Amino acid sequence: MYNNDLNNEILKLLKEQPEISEKNIARILSISEDAVKARIADLKDVREKILIMGNGHNDYHDLKKALEAENYKVVNIPNTLPALKTVSEERPDLVLLDTASLDKEGLEICRQLKTSPKYWWIPVMVLSEKNKAEDSIKAFKYGADDYIASPVNSQELRARIGMVIRRGRI
């Protein structure tokens, strides 16, 4: 069962039986009680979600810590998972493509998201190790909403992410 399907089943049970226990939900759905607790907590989390795709040379842990300090929920997805399926399951407010490991594939993910009738509205920001004008121009041609090159100034990155998310709400 996909994440969205499982979440929908949990929500359905909670709506039909408001007093149902997490233990009973786990039994009905044949999943662990810990999984039910985690999903319910996740469903209650209303923070803006940033989905980082790629596991390149950019320091993910420092980036995650800096963004969580700004009260974002940060999820990292390795580039081995299908991009559109991952976006569908995670429902992020912003996709941050770390092209240090994705390269051309990262820009293709950007193009797929921006040409999809279901996901075109989700802001995509490209984080790259390349600091050449032609690389940023290429990213924008593929549909990126913003582009930032390494080394990344964490204050600038946080400001840009906030701006891109705000702009995406308009």
Score class of each variant (00 low, 15 high):
V164L: 11
N76A: 10
V46L: 12
I28R: 02
L43I: 13
K114N: 04
L84V: 07
K44G: 04
L14N: 09
S30Q: 12
L29C: 05
E89Q: 15
N131D: 13
W120M: 12
D145E: 13
N24K: 15
I109W: 11
K64G: 02
K141W: 03
A41W: 03
L157T: 01
L96T: 00
G168Y: 05
I109K: 11
E33R: 03
Q155C: 14
A66F: 13
L96D: 00
L6T: 06
R166L: 14
A144Q: 09
I25Q: 07
I77A: 15
A100L: 09
A133S: 13
P151F: 06
Y72N: 10
K44H: 09
N4L: 15
P78T: 05
N24C: 13
E108G: 04
E156Q: 14
A41E: 12
K138I: 00
E105H: 05
T115S: 15
A139G: 06
K44Q: 10
S136N: 02
L96S: 01
Y119L: 09
S88N: 13
P78R: 07
I50K: 04
N71L: 04
I137W: 06
D62Q: 14
N24P: 10
P78N: 07
I137E: 09
G56F: 01
Y2V: 15
R167A: 01
A100E: 10
K104H: 08
K49T: 15
T115C: 10
I170N: 11
E70K: 14
S30F: 06
L14V: 04
I31P: 00
D135A: 10
I10Y: 02
G106S: 05
T80H: 11
K15M: 12
A38Y: 13
V74D: 01
K64V: 02
L11N: 13
A144D: 07
M53D: 00
A139E: 03
I165W: 04
K44R: 10
N8K: 13
L63P: 05
A38R: 15
E105D: 09
I170K: 14
W121Y: 14
T99L: 04
R158Q: 15
V152N: 08
K138D: 06
E9C: 15
R27T: 03
I20Q: 08
P92A: 01
T99I: 09
K141H: 12
P78F: 02
